[in-house]
Design a binder for these strands. Structure first.
Lengths: 211, 211
DNA sequence: CCTACCGATCGGTAGG
DNA sequence: CCTACCGATCGGTAGG
């Protein structure tokens, strides 16, 4: 199979904790936490398994750092996006764009975070769960506010909220950052999807339907 | 942890191949294929590991049957839903409703199918991949046709298609069939989401926005 | 960063 | 349906 550059060189001492985390991220995303062995990670890095433990304490630590970091950044970017305006329609659009941009540019993190939560030991799993509940709740409150203001038209803000957040994270499963469309372009269109889904009228409508 | 009824009884010979598949499905959905051992499945059924092999040839067979069956049923229901009308808007709505209903009522199948594809041996993995490509392509063509007819207004049918299909499968991650809202109600609202997302005007709009 | 090794567990088989 | 057992591999440690 394919190997990283360092695995093919005869050079030594090129491995760093960061490189281990990077390789673990790639393998976890491809075959899952339980489907990845420490031997797999070592082989990919061109070293022997016991040498990994110079850089990392345990396999579980790799997963914990990875998921916690990802979740905190996602939430931070959400708050940043929402803080830039008071308008519900624009908040929803920007929150959606932020989530899509992150998941499109960091698909491995999104995949592992959604797939290997059950492999995460407590109390970290509970901590991540709390962060997600907070994200969903904040996202939903935008929809609720917009609905109260008559800007949106939605039957169940909860359904709409889950639909949109899951739609955003799912781009990690099919979008190719190296493909023809950029992550920004994808994010723009998903922002439009979000506004449409909640029944909001868009200001950035691309085509008129007065055919 | 919790055990099935049969695991707590002293009765014997209650296990069937179907019961093994059912238990495997539950555990695969909870902790993944690689996170589930044959011992775990046996324990849940109240028997010893070697006895499992009376009912099943190999662990991999459990995964294969499960994913292939799920995918074929999903696709069959899609074709059935689409065949009931010629109108693009209604086809999209009914295709969405069918997918959501299935994933809401069979969340474990959806979770395993999306999570443990990489654990599936060839040529079955390739076969499932083909079925999914066909599903997405058929779904997308509805969007393309509707767009050509001026019924929909979409920049990228591909983006819209992936967004909607992933949105549908994701209900397996949060919807509770035992909760207050029924799968049919969820499906109805998601059908509405689909029509809105592609810029189609709904016939079943619940509230007027002329307030 | 390595070789050598630990106890535990993996999927699966033998032979009742 | 069981006990007993197979070779292979797991995450991780000892001791350089």
């Amino acid at each position: 199979m394919s190997r990283s550059a360092s695995a093919e060189q005869g050079s030594r001492a090129t491995v760093t904790p960061k490189a281990v985390r990077e390789t673990a991220l790639t393998l976890f995303a491809r075959v899952g936490y339980h489907g990845t062995t420490m031997n797999d990670i070592a082989r990919e890095l061109g070293i022997k398994k016991p040498s990994l433990y110079v850089h990392v304490r345990a396999k579980q630590d790799l997963l914990r750092d990875l998921i916690l970091e990802t979740e905190e950044r996602l939430l931070a970017e959400f708050h940043e996006a929402v803080a830039s305006t008071d308008d519900a329609r624009e908040q929803l659009r920007r929150a959606m764009e932020a989530a899509v941009r992150r998941h499109a540019l960091h698909p491995r993190q999104a995949l592992v975070g959604n797939r290997d939560m059950s492999a995460l030991d407590e109390p970290h799993r509970e901590r991540v769960h709390e962060l997600r509940v907070e994200h969903e709740r904040s996202f939903r409150s935008i929809i609720e506010r917009g609905t109260e203001q008559g800007v949106f038209d939605v039957e169940s803000p909860r359904f709409a909220s889950f639909a949109l957040l899951e739609m955003a994270v799912s781009v990690a499963r099919w979008f190719d950052p190296a493909g023809p469309a950029s992550a920004d372009e994808l994010a723009r269109q998903y922002g439009e999807f979000a506004v449409r889904l909640v029944g909001g009228v868009s200001r950035r409508r691309t085509a008129k339907r007065s055919g």
